[in-house]
Design a protein around this nucleic acid. Structure first.
Lengths: 188, 188
DNA sequence: CAATTTCGATACGCATTCGTTTCGGAACGA
DNA sequence: TCGTTCCGAAACGAATGCGTATCGAAATTG
C-alpha cells in the first residue's frame, strides 16, 4: 500500500558508478559526484545503499555474467571460442573493470568476495573444457586446474593489463596454439 | 656556503611512501601521514618534492632495478634462471608494487612513463634470452618479441595478480616447461 | 480518489587533507 | 666562529566529501 522504491534510480546510480570507476578509479568515486551525474539526489542514494562501499561493491557485482560452455570435441577449438568470447566481446566493460577490482580487492575483504565470484564465473566454462580434454585423454589428467587456468589465460591478461597492447588476430592465433601446446607438454 | 639539503630526509620519505603505497594504495598516501611516519616535517617534504604526485612517482621510480642476463646456452635454463630471479627474490617489493602501478598508470601519464621504464628494465634480459634462442634456431626467428614476453611471463603474472596464489616449485616447473613448449609451437 | 511513501533539492555539522606560512633552533660551509 | 640555510613543530584557510536532516512535490497502491 505504498509507493515502491524506484528501481530506475537504483540502476542509474549503478551505471554512473561503473562509469566513474572506469574514469576515476575506486577512490575517485564520491557520493556527491554520483548524485550530480545520475540525477538522483543524495538522500535517495542513501536510501538505496547504505554507504559508498556498498555502491562500489554493487557496481562490481552488477557485472557478474554467466558464460556458456562450448563443447566442440577439441580442446583447441573450445578454448578458441572462449578466448574470443572473453576478450573480443568485452561484455559490459568487464575487461576494463577487472584490473581495478583486482587492485582494490587487495585491501578490501568485501571486494575479495566479489572478485572471486566474478572470477569463478569467468573460469567455469574454461575449467569445464579442460576437464573434458582430460577425460578424452588429450592432456595430462593430473594437471592442476588452477595451473591450467594460468597457462591458458595468463598471456591474454598480461597483454592487456601489463603490456597495454591490442589483442589482435595474430596474437590470439599464436597464443592459442602456444597455450594448447603448453598444456600438452605436462606429461610429467 | 650553505647547508646542503638532507639526502637522508629525502630517502626516509621515499621509503615510508613505498610502505604506505603497499599498505593503503595510491590514494591512501597523504603528506601528513608521510610526515608523521617518516619523522620529516611537512615543510621539509614540500621543499624536497613539489607535491604529492611527485612523491608517488619518485617512490615508484626508486624501485627501478637492472637485472643481469643469463646465457646458459639453452632457452629453458635461461628462462628458469630469470623466473627464479624475478619471482622468488622479490627484489625491493617490486612484485607487490607492480599491480598498484599498473592500475594507477591507467589514469596518470606520468606514472605511465615510470611503468614503462620499470617494465622495460624487467623484460630486457628475457628479451635478450629469447633473441639468443632465435639466433640458435631453437625457436621461430620471426616470433614477435612482445608476444613471446606475454607467453613467458603471463602465467606467472596471472598466478599472482589474478588468482592470488603462491608461486611454488611445482607451478614454476610446469609453467616453465609449458612456456618453452609454447614458444616452440610457433613454427608457423 | 485519498493516503502513504518515495523522490529530489538544499542545508548543516563534522572530519580530513591539502598547500602555505611562521617560528625558533640546529647544522653545516667558509 | 659566524652567517646562511635547512629542519621540525605548529597553526592557518580553503576545499572537499561524508552522513544526516528537512521539506514540498510527485507518484503509486488500495
Amino acid at each position: 500500500m505504498a509507493r515502491p522504491r524506484s528501481e530506475d534510480a537504483r540502476n542509474r546510480v549503478i551505471e554512473v558508478a561503473v562509469d566513474a570507476l572506469l574514469a576515476l578509479g575506486v577512490e575517485g568515486v564520491t557520493i556527491e559526484n554520483l548524485a550530480l551525474r545520475s540525477g538522483v539526489a543524495k538522500s535517495t542514494i542513501y536510501r538505496h545503499f547504505g554507504n559508498l562501499d556498498c555502491i562500489v561493491t554493487e557496481a562490481f557485482r552488477s557485472r557478474i555474467v554467466e558464460y556458456p560452455t562450448p563443447d566442440t570435441g577439441s580442446l583447441e577449438t573450445d578454448v578458441e571460442e572462449l578466448f574470443i568470447r572473453y576478450n573480443l566481446d568485452d561484455h559490459r566493460q568487464l575487461n576494463e573493470l577487472m584490473p581495478l577490482l583486482l587492485e582494490a580487492a587487495r585491501r578490501d575483504p568485501a571486494l575479495c568476495e566479489v572478485r572471486d565470484r566474478i572470477l569463478a564465473e569467468r573460469q567455469r566454462p574454461l575449467r569445464t573444457v579442460v576437464k573434458l580434454a582430460q577425460a578424452r585423454g588429450e592432456i595430462d589428467p593430473d594437471l592442476d586446474l588452477d595451473i591450467a587456468m594460468a597457462m591458458l589465460t595468463g598471456p591474454l591478461t598480461y597483454r592487456k593489463m601489463v603490456q597495454d597492447l591490442e589483442v589482435d588476430d595474430e596474437f590470439l592465433r599464436v597464443v592459442l596454439r602456444g597455450a594448447v601446446a603448453a598444456l600438452r607438454s605436462t606429461v610429467d
